[in-house]
């Protein structure tokens, strides 16, 4: 089982990196023919940077659009970030105190992540407009991430796993020196769903993460008018 997971991890990682690099390169290669920023658009590069930061950090446009979607979406993304940081424990060579300090916020974030995912899933099911535009993959994506979150929480509180041994395994992956993964079905499920998510990333809507930065709507600026004086 350890070997299987090792192969899956390497494979998924390779797909993720190559896929994103390929996508980003293909975006970068395609020209933008005209000025397409959505007004009111900034007229300086600083303004553009600020606009992108506001969107990327606070989801400003989504906030204007729909408060519930914004709330669930924003909480989900930040909770995911904190949860990911908590997992640094498994990939840092030595056990850093600041990483251990992330355990508690990470535990809280896991619940927030599950809650916000349920909120997003609820909107998809119960708001007729959102239900209409949803495809199977939209539900599948939410359910996959929910599965990761729920198995994670189960590992934390119900079916404890030897985290030191797990850490040895992940560090082993990084050193190409394989050790045994603890025998734990929930852990297998947790890892398998992570592998699936990582592998589909470049081929799915998850590509919105790098894709956003190529959106001419937000990354272009207008020139400023210089007015000549013709009246006499």
């Amino acid at each position: 089982m350890s070997a299987t997971f090792a192969i899956l991890f390497y494979l998924a990682g390779l797909i993720l990196i190559c896929g994103i690099v390929w996508k980003v390169l293909s975006y970068a290669r395609i020209p933008v023919r005209y000025l397409l920023p959505i007004a009111p658009a900034p007229q300086s590069s600083g303004g553009v940077a600020l606009r992108i930061l506001r969107e990327a950090l606070f989801f400003e446009s989504l906030f204007k659009a729909n408060k519930w979607t914004w709330l669930f979406g924003w909480i989900f993304h930040y909770a995911l970030l904190v949860v990911l940081l908590r997992h640094l424990f498994f990939v840092t060579w030595s056990i850093e105190p600041w990483v251990v300090m992330l355990f508690f916020p990470g535990d809280v974030a896991a619940w927030l992540m599950i809650g916000s995912l349920l909120g997003l899933l609820g909107r998809r099911i119960f708001v007729d407009r959102v239900r209409y535009i949803s495809t199977v993959s939209d539900y599948a994506m939410l359910i996959l991430i929910l599965l990761i979150g729920i198995t994670g929480v189960v590992l934390r509180y119900r079916v404890p796993v030897d985290i030191m041994a797990t850490r040895e395994f992940t560090l082993g992956l990084m050193k190409f020196d394989l050790t045994d993964l603890p025998r734990n079905v929930v852990l297998y499920l947790h890892l398998a769903s992570v592998v699936a998510l990582v592998a589909v990333f470049p081929f799915s809507k998850l590509i919105h993460f790098p894709g956003y930065f190529f959106s001419p709507s937000h990354n272009q600026k207008y020139p400023t008018a210089k007015m000549k004086d013709l009246s006499r």
């Binding site: 996508k23 293909s26 975006y27 395609i30 020209p31 933008v32 023919r33 397409l36 446009s61 989504l62 659009a65 729909n66 979607t69 979406g73 909107r123 998809r124 708001v127 407009r129 959102v130 209409y132 535009i133 949803s134 495809t135 939209d138 809507k205 590509i207 919105h208 894709g211 956003y212 190529f214 959106s215 001419p216 709507s217």
Partner: peptide, 21 residues
């Protein structure tokens, strides 16, 4: 293949529903 805006727009939609109303 020749219009970046189109390509990014077609790929990036997450079906969040913000635009629907």
């Amino acid at each position: 293949r020749s219009n970046r805006a189109l390509r990014v727009f077609l790929d990036s939609c997450v079906k969040c529903g913000a635009c629907t109303d």
